[in-house]
Amino acid sequence: MEDEKGFILELLNPKTQNEAFRKLVREYQRPLYAHIRNMVLNHDDADDVLQNTFVKVFQNLKNFKGESKLYSWMYRIATNEAINFINSRAKKSGVTNEELKERLVKNLEADVDYDGNEIQLKLQKAVTTLPEKQQQVFKMKYFEEMKYEEISEILQTSVGGLKASYFHAVKKIEEFLNSN
């Protein structure tokens, strides 16, 4: 977003806030939706989490200190909202996060909003076998095609650490796909 400081001032000014926020939503709804959907897998859940994310963004605009970029701040909120969603869903169902994710992937087979073929479904299954951090990095790099620098700002991890995580993730997924 060009002239981010000017845009942030528009977001904070009560007179221009509404229009500026609508502009923010239009610009980020698709990438944030994709980010959340990759984590929660189901469309209705992604819709809920996306709404919660923007509501939080709106409510916390006054606390945004501008120390990080606006987009990375929003991605962090979206990531946290999706993680909280998975945690509370797992707790309610009395299962672990890993078990819940396996269940969510299994549900994709009958999901009207999923039209992945066999290899695509297998890839989703393979991802759930990874440790949490590697899942996160793999999804952001492979599916969302983000740069390491962007992921680094969002997850607040070094680029070197992210490259190592992605390398291990790819190896494990290839092993899974080639052996199953």
Binding site: Q29, Y33, H43, D47, L108, D113, Y114, Q120, Q124, F143
Partner: peptide
């Protein structure tokens, strides 16, 4: 690239805002 396979319902983003 193997795509994720997720479908988004038609017009979802038209009404989201």
């Amino acid at each position: 690239k193997i795509e994720s396979g997720f479908k988004i319902p038609d017009n979802y983003f038209d009404s989201f805002e």
